[in-house]
């Protein structure tokens, strides 16, 4: 629990964002750091799975985030594309994309979307979301 609290403190910490993203979030109290940077700092000894990247995949694809936010967040934090590139690829204005990413990060922080791998019981519907297809047949491989 101490580790988790520390992680959330870290997430709430002020961080220097690229100017456009910061500007897009001006109306909210604090800029939220990039989950990709923050997750790697997190230590959760009670967790069996220590794969930060895997946890990040599940956070980016959490159902509490809109699909367009999931896609943008995955391209930003998992694929490492910058905002301009994501905006081009998804054919939306760069300011719109910056705003979408800021909102997604803020929702992760304020609504406390967890950084964790789902339990076995939760996994099936989650995998459909993460991979975009039904993974029932592949469950044994996990």
């Amino acid at each position: 629990m101490a580790a988790r609290n520390k992680a959330y403190d870290t997430m709430r910490r002020e961080a220097v964002r690229p100017a456009k993203e910061t500007a897009a979030g001006w109306h909210l109290p604090a800029a939220i750091p990039d989950p990709a940077e923050e997750v790697t700092e997190m230590v959760e000894p009670e967790s069996v799975v220590r794969d930060d990247m895997l946890r990040l995949v599940f956070t980016c694809c959490h159902p509490a985030l809109a699909l367009d936010a999931q896609v943008a967040l995955a391209l930003r934090t998992l694929a490492g594309l910058d905002v301009a590139a994501i905006a081009r690829v998804l054919m939306v204005p760069q300011a719109t994309m910056a705003k979408r990413l800021v909102r997604a990060r803020q929702k992760i922080a304020h609504a406390r979307i967890p950084y964790r791998v789902p339990t076995d019981a939760e996994l099936d519907p989650v995998l459909v979301r993460v991979t975009g297809r039904d993974c029932q047949a592949r469950k044994g491989d996990l």
Partner: peptide, 8 residues
Amino acid sequence: AADLDEAT
């Protein structure tokens, strides 16, 4: 709750 999943 601890997080959004528990609240859900």
